[in-house]
Simulated assay, not measured.
Amino acid sequence: MLVLSAGLVVAGAVAVKGIRTASDTITVTGASTERIRSDYVDWTVTVSGSGPSQQSAYQSLQPQLQRTLAYLEEQGIPAKAIGRGVIQSSSNDIRNHVTGALMSTTWTARQPIRISSADVTLIRDVSIRISDLVGQGVSITVEPPAYTYTKLAEKRVDMLAKATADARKRAIAIADQANSGIGAITKADTGTFQITVPNSTEMGSYGSYNTSTIDKDITAVMGVTFRVQ
């Protein structure tokens, strides 16, 4: 935000020099930032089983899969929030490094489990505790939960309106230094839309959408051109 603020100051300083007559315009960048809280989460846990054949790998997977599903429900996640992906299997050949002869083959079967829920706090807490299954001998791979905000379209409109209002305030402050006034908007350009971790100073050229935290900062930027009176 320090970088963004500096950019706004520079833009304002350049614009003052362009105020000459009533037909002139001034272009100012406005911004609006708010803290929002994610209201939805997607989380994937993959359970694995291994064996010397594809069939044995699948058979090894089943009890671990059932234990994982039971654990998720024990933690308070409803069955309707839990879905299964397509089982995938792969093989790994172990060969003699001198002769290249095949020594053994290990098959691995993987079952993705996807959890989708509006209870972001519950899923966050379970994602922290699920490593307990590893201590019970369950082979799992846990991806970080992806937290999103489902009302983003409505929030975007509100944020752009506030960014435009901020641009007008800046334009008025700049015009006052030249004893001029601000008239109607002649052009408005939507800038980058940033959703970042709280208090982040990172700004992407094409916008950003952070999904790693429940709380986020949302920033809208507008480039607005006003007529100078």
Rank of each mutant, 00 (worst) to 15 (best):
Leu2His: 12
Leu4Cys: 03
Ala6Leu: 15
Gly7Thr: 03
Val10Glu: 15
Val16Ala: 15
Lys17Cys: 02
Ser23Arg: 13
Ser23Glu: 15
Ile26Glu: 06
Thr27His: 03
Thr27Asn: 05
Val28Glu: 09
Val28Gly: 06
Ser32Met: 04
Arg37Pro: 00
Ser38Lys: 07
Ser38Asn: 09
Asp39Asn: 14
Trp43Asp: 03
Val45Lys: 03
Gly51Phe: 00
Pro52Gly: 11
Ser60Gln: 12
Leu65Cys: 02
Leu69Phe: 03
Ala70Asp: 09
Ala70His: 05
Tyr71Met: 03
Leu72Tyr: 02
Ala79Ser: 13
Lys80Gly: 07
Gly83Ser: 15
Val86Asp: 06
Gln88Ser: 13
Asn92Leu: 13
Ile94Pro: 00
Asn96Tyr: 06
Leu102Thr: 04
Leu102Ala: 03
Leu102Pro: 02
Met103Ile: 14
Thr106Ala: 10
Trp107Phe: 14
Thr108Asn: 10
Arg110Tyr: 00
Ile113Arg: 03
Ser116Thr: 09
Ser117Asn: 09
Val120Asp: 07
Thr121Lys: 14
Ile123Phe: 02
Arg124Tyr: 11
Arg124Phe: 10
Ser127Asn: 08
Arg129Ile: 08
Ile130Ser: 06
Asp132Ala: 14
Val134Gly: 07
Val138Gln: 01
Thr141Tyr: 05
Pro145Glu: 15
Ala146Leu: 12
Tyr149Leu: 08
Lys151Gln: 14
Lys151Val: 05
Lys155Met: 15
Lys155Asp: 12
Leu160Trp: 01
Leu160Gln: 13
Ala165Lys: 09
Asp166Ile: 05
Lys169Ser: 11
Lys169Glu: 09
Lys169Phe: 03
Ile172Lys: 09
Gln177Gly: 11
Asn179Leu: 05
Ser180Trp: 04
Ile185Arg: 08
Ala188Glu: 15
Thr192Asp: 09
Phe193His: 01
Phe193Gly: 00
Thr201Trp: 07
Met203His: 04
Gly204Trp: 01
Ile214Leu: 07
Lys216Cys: 06
Lys216Asp: 04
Met222Lys: 08
Phe226Asn: 02
Arg227Tyr: 00
Val228Cys: 05
